[in-house]
Design a protein around this nucleic acid. Sequence first.
RNA 1: GCUCCGGUCGUCUAGCGGUUCAGGACAUCGCCCUCUCACGGCGGAGAUCGAGGGUUCGAAUCCCUUCCGGAGUACCA
Length: 514
Amino acid sequence: MSVRVRFAPSPTGLLHVGALRDALHKFLLARHSGGTNILRIEDTDRTRYNADSEKEFIETLHWAGIDFDEGPHIGGPHAPYRQSVRKEKGIYAEWIQVLLSKGFAYKAFDTPEELAAMREQQTANKVNTGYFGGIWRDATPSQVAEAEAAGKTYVIRQRIPRDTTIVVEDLIRGRIEWDSNTVDDPVLIKTDGMPTYHFAAMVDDHIMGITHIMRGEEWISSAPKHVCLFEAFGWDKPVFVHCPVIVGNDGKKLSKRHGATRVLDYKAQGYLPHALKNFIALIGWSPGDEREAMTEAELIEAFDLSGMQPSPGKFDIDKLKWINGIHIRGVSASELVSVVLQYVCDEYVREYWTNFVEESPMPGKAPIVGTDVLAKLDKIASADSAYVASILPMLQERVVTLADFGDGAEFFFDDLPSMDQKAVDKWFKQEHVRGLFSRLLADIGRVPCSVESYDALLKQYQVDLSLEKLGPIVHPVRVALTGKTAGPGLFELMAVLGPDRMKVRLERALELCV
RNA sequence: GCUCCGGUCGUCUAGCGGUUCAGGACAUCGCCCUCUCACGGCGGAGAUCGAGGGUUCGAAUCCCUUCCGGAGUACCA
């Protein structure tokens, strides 16, 4: 039987990394096995539904390259894929009727106040809280008829069998058992007629032929209810896969104080979608061998549920940075420019940096201002594309995120880049430097503009000055040309800069040598 | 409180009764490469496998107990 899995978000907020991981697992499993990846919108909670949120989900998933074979946006054999629409079609009403008639569900007329009082009572007596029957589980038909006639509102609850053991076979954790007397009767249909997750998701999973119910481990305690539902209907049970969650450094659920949780913020910070996926896949899963950085195809090929870990994993930003660097280095020279340009021009990336301000990790140092980051990035976007194409590859192996290209490339675009004063103090005061600069100034016009010729030229200076090392030549020139002490290879950078740009900078440097 | 789940270097993990006084990766430290910074290469430090008992010739791996962490305990998902 072919694998069918579904990503079923409830559009109530931003798409964070935990949800992306959920979507990724299903995407990977479906693609690995040649199965079907389904998108289903679970919008049964009308009080929390948020249309912007749905837009956020679609945009994020699209960026991440996680696609679907069936869903509200593309249709499919089990349309509609939106639970609010399915409810209107009467799908849940039809199936709850089956349960009611078989005696696996019942109407309960308790008011919210009565339920609150019951819970209070249970807490005081230190017993399980929850609805284990109340007066309605075993009410007579005439009591129910009377309440209905009186116009009382009701919910429909699932009748969990008593005095038995409920077993959930979980693919990752194995057999999990519950004493059915510890499982309360969940609401299946709310007063407003909408189904709850417990009901809608299971009914849809069955109808849509879902083979693997993959979800976060926070669902484990509800799993016995779901198993009972399948048994009440007499349906074949899918495979339950309760995946470990991603937690913060303190072992608690990931939240804002652990850093960015919104997936789009990782996009804005300059992480490649595949790098994020590669990294997230590695939390709680391993291919079984020692591979870590993998291409998309390798990841799909390697993904297997047997490699899933039962324990929660922490989000280690350093490892994400490492893996992002690897994937940036893997971008071909022909694609690099468009990858960076697309990043710089992206609407959300710009919005993110425009509003970004963060205290510097070093006390006393200036805060990191997003608009500065953006300004540097914009220099790339507005420069001549051939020039940019010659610059970017030099930076490729020195960069961690796409945002770093802005800082790394800045000196190429400024006629007079800002100078690192400490570097000036260190190098420009040396005796040979003034002569070095004027000689270079004279030579750059007559020597070919190429890596080889500049290499030969500066090495000739070294010989002429009888210097033991190349450093005293290279370092001052680098500072004169770039304002910095670190960066791409000097000869390469000179060849890209060309004689005209170098001339202006060397003249300025000469003035600084006093 | 009750019910479940989890527990191998700081972090992500390999490990499925012996070939492991535990392998890889990130981070960290050192060396090499070298015009700098990176990249890359090599090496070091870092886990008595949460703890205590068993079972066994032999346990991180099986059993029991215990501790710690987490989740659920909604007419939210």
